[in-house]
């Protein structure tokens, strides 16, 4: 019930994202979701792709530090309060969210929300129990 995400080390210099995406293009890797926040001299880019293992091995060969980790992807309903519901559940169960980002699959109406928490398995289990749609 967890989704595999790739974390990539990127120095905050001009062209480092372009360098990364050019490697992905060259290897026909499809980006499903991408997220990077404000950085100082360096940051971590999060990526969801179709073939994470292969992608990491390609990136490593190119001298890029990359790692696969598990994240949770949920599909909240399109109504006010649906995100609130998820966060309340996690909070009530003492689960801390490290970061979130969202991504949209074409051909679908609703975005997925990607969540990284301190207790991944527990969070997934609880959300499923409470009727939240978790992407398998």
């Amino acid at each position: 019930m967890l989704v595999k995400q790739i974390s990539i080390f990127i120095p905050n210099v001009k062209g480092s994202l372009a360098k990364l995406t050019s490697i992905l293009v060259k290897n026909n890797i499809d980006i499903r979701a991408i997220s990077v926040f404000d950085t100082t001299e360096f940051g971590i880019l999060r990526l969801v792709v179709d073939n994470p293992e292969e992608t990491v091995s390609i990136l490593t060969k190119e001298g890029i530090v990359a790692k696969i980790s598990d994240v949770l992807a949920v599909e909240p309903e399109d109504k006010p309060g649906s995100l609130d519901e998820i966060f309340q559940i996690l909070s009530d169960n003492d689960i801390n969210i490290d970061y979130i980002y969202s991504y949209v699959m074409r051909m679908r109406e609703l975005p997925y929300i990607v969540l990284k928490t301190d207790h991944m398995e527990k969070a997934a289990k609880i959300l499923i129990e409470r009727g939240i749609k978790v992407i398998q």
């Binding site: 974390s7 990539i8 080390f9 360096f42 940051g43 971590i44 490593t60 530090v65 990359a66 790692k67 980790s69 490290d98």
Partner: peptide, 14 residues
């Protein structure tokens, strides 16, 4: 040069 990918779990580790 950073080499340990395990530090990419969170920005705070870096």
């Amino acid at each position: 040069e950073l080499i340990d990918a395990n530090l990419l779990d969170s920005f705070s580790l870096l």
